[in-house]
Design a binder for these strands. Structure first.
Length: 265
DNA sequence: ATGGTGGCTGGGCCA
């Protein structure tokens, strides 16, 4: 069983590339982020034609998460079960106002597709909201999931967990994605009972999932590892491999993220 | 130190 995650940066703009990647990589489950679509604009039919059910949770022009599965979809939960998102609501309003979380059970494994807030800059309300969002994710796991059951939390975490996950830690001092509170929020997920599946299989530095479109950063190798597949022990016991498909970042009009996948026996 | 690219759009905002 292959489970993948990919921040596609607009599923509308990327549909052909996603279809091509499904055909080539043949994942059983694909978690997507930044679909940038409303639910009624979700491309259900193209996925069905490729053999996948599509569960989409979006709000329109920003954010948006989805799960494509060819091994079934059960027990869908969106937005941490808080109800419909309300785009434009105040950041401190409840329920959460952005489409950043959808969960389903696929092939006997609970999968969660998440798109963590970027945070923009330290000492902004957006950064504080990012930390609050991670605290909410952790509380949701405590309330609605079991660390001794098969579970995968995957997506764009917008956190590089360690210095080896960025090309030059000095470049990130005073910025988001590498700050101690963000790393602590990531660690709190591991402490609950999740394992960073890619890092277990790849201790080496210089492995990234995102490269800025600008300044030729991809070709210079200037990236960050901010997309992750975190899995509970029952999944890790079955995990044979974890890979980043860097080739999918190449060519014309790619996403700025590469897909990441794990293979389970 | 700055700006660079891309995807919403239909002017900025966001990443």
């Amino acid at each position: 069983m292959r489970i993948a995650t990919w921040n596609v940066n607009s599923l509308k703009a990327r549909l052909e590339r996603v279809e091509g990647w499904l055909a080539q990589a043949s994942p059983d489950v694909l978690l997507m982020q930044e679909t940038k679509l409303s639910d009624d604009a979700a491309p259900t039919m193209p996925f069905r034609m490729a053999g996948y059910e599509l569960v989409h949770h979006g709000e329109g022009r920003w954010n948006g998460v989805a799960i494509a599965s060819r091994v079934g979809v059960e027990d869908v939960v969106t937005n941490f079960g808080l109800g419909p998102v309300r785009p434009g609501a105040a950041a401190d309003d409840e329920p959460a106002h952005e489409a950043r979380m959808v969960a389903a059970t696929c092939g006997g494994i609970r999968v969660v597709s998440i798109y963590a807030p970027n945070g923009r800059a330290l000492a902004t309300p957006f950064y504080a909201a990012k930390l609050d969002w991670f605290a909410r994710l952790r509380r949701w796991l405590e309330a609605s999931a079991e660390p001794d059951r098969p579970l995968v939390v995957g997506g764009d975490f917008n956190v590089a967990p360690a210095d080896v996950d960025v090309y030059d830690p000095a470049d990130f001092v005073g910025t988001t994605h590498t700050s101690a509170p963000e790393r602590a929020a990531f660690q709190a997920l591991l402490d609950w009972g999740l394992v960073d599946a890619y890092r277990i299989h790849h201790p080496e530095p210089g492995r990234y999932t995102w490269w800025d479109y600008r300044a030729g950063n991809f070709h210079k190798g200037l990236g960050m590892r901010i997309d992750h597949l975190l899995a509970t022990r029952q999944v890790m016991e079955r995990c044979l491999a974890a890979e980043i498909d860097r080739d999918a970042r190449k060519g014309k009009l790619p996403s700025d993220h590469a897909p990441l996948y794990i293979d389970l026996r």
